[in-house]
Nucleic acid binder design. Structure first.
Lengths: 193, 193
DNA sequence: TAAATAAGTGCAATGACTACACTTTCGGAG
DNA sequence: CTCCGAAAGTGTAGTCATTGCACTTATTTA
């Protein structure tokens, strides 16, 4: 990777860092894109070359999510049902944050997202964007037609369950209860998957 | 109801009508609030006194939805489970559109909403806004604590299923399959509800 | 009828985002 | 090594939704 790409990644990172710091300090709505650009010492135009919108500044990840989601279904250990695999995958993401929870930065981060409507919505949309891919993976895993309704429904429900789990003080228990609803019906229509 | 309120309702209606007509004609993004205000012969300021935002111009209803949703659960006929009641309620809303489907206006309307990201998102948020109320109604109906997770999950899943059903060419079948997933698990944890 | 209330208006501003025309800086093909 | 084109970055000027403010006008209501 040449100097060029390194510099690019560097600018992007500087923007993301500056944004998070400012948002945490003053609150999302009290910070303008101009402020972020200035703090990262680039122009506003450049900021928008790197991030599609103000909200995207906070979610630097996004790209890997879909792959991980699909992999969780495709490469689930034998004997584990698809709903179970999804439940564990979503819990893991939650847990990763929990690991870092000692760092108050992460607690603040999730609080920021949950308390800022624009960010909450964006996060939801971000996950929903991968629904189609997940539905396809599920259908493939059980040998159903690509547009099978119950596969699409499972995908949608699992993603909808995510933020429910995230908000709950006891994620493990919340996940168990929410997915219990799904596992039964899934087992009934797709035995041994 | 005095003349004042009548005029107010009239202006509101003129705005909603003008907006829908223009949006259908040119597409949502190709119409500015200014255009809508002009077409309804009021100022932009007035437009925003009546509607919270551009998207709200299209969804004139909203208020009755929550009440109807809660009622569907609370006043379900005896012997019908809560998931069943919700499925029928959502289908009914779908059917209502279908009834008017002869009028090409309604087909165009739903297409407009589904094809415009801003409107699709807004519609989703609109329904999600009533999730808490629905969850409470469900919890009350089964005598569970108000913050019971599986009740909250059922509420969320049912609302998430809505747009899935809406998009499907065969709503009835889609609803059956999607809710089949929920009914089993629900029956297991809440017998006879 | 007078005072309070609410609808409606025009204007100016903010803030996110885009289009454009430009400069600088790498990276690779010859 | 050099030259050329792609890609990063810049500044300016604009669009568009949305808000705040001070104002007029119509309708209630006391």
């Amino acid at each position: 990777m040449g100097r060029r790409e390194r510099k690019k990644a560097q600018t992007r990172q500087a923007l993301a860092d500056a944004a998070l710091e400012l948002f945490l300090e003053r609150g999302y709505d009290q910070v303008g894109v101009k402020d972020v650009a200035d703090a990262a010492d680039v122009s506003v135009t450049t900021l928008f070359k790197h991030f599609a919108g103000k909200e995207a500044l906070v979610f630097d990840q996004d790209d890997d999510l879909e792959a991980a989601l699909v992999a969780a279904v495709r490469e689930r250990p034998p004997g584990r049902s698809i709903p179970q695999a999804l439940r564990e995958h979503l819990l893991l993401h939650q847990t990763r944050f929990a690991v870092h929870a000692a760092d108050p930065r992460f607690a603040d981060f999730t609080r920021l997202v949950q308390e800022t409507p624009a960010l909450r919505d964006y996060s939801q949309r971000m996950w929903t964007r991968h629904e189609a891919a997940l539905a396809r993976a599920v259908a493939e895993a059980v040998g159903a037609p690509e547009d099978d309704v119950s596969c699409a429904a499972l995908a949608r429900f699992a993603l909808a369950a995510r933020s429910l789990i995230l908000q709950h003080p006891e994620p493990r228990r919340a996940a168990d209860e929410a997915f219990a609803l799904l596992e039964q019906g899934w087992a009934a229509s797709h035995p041994s998957n």
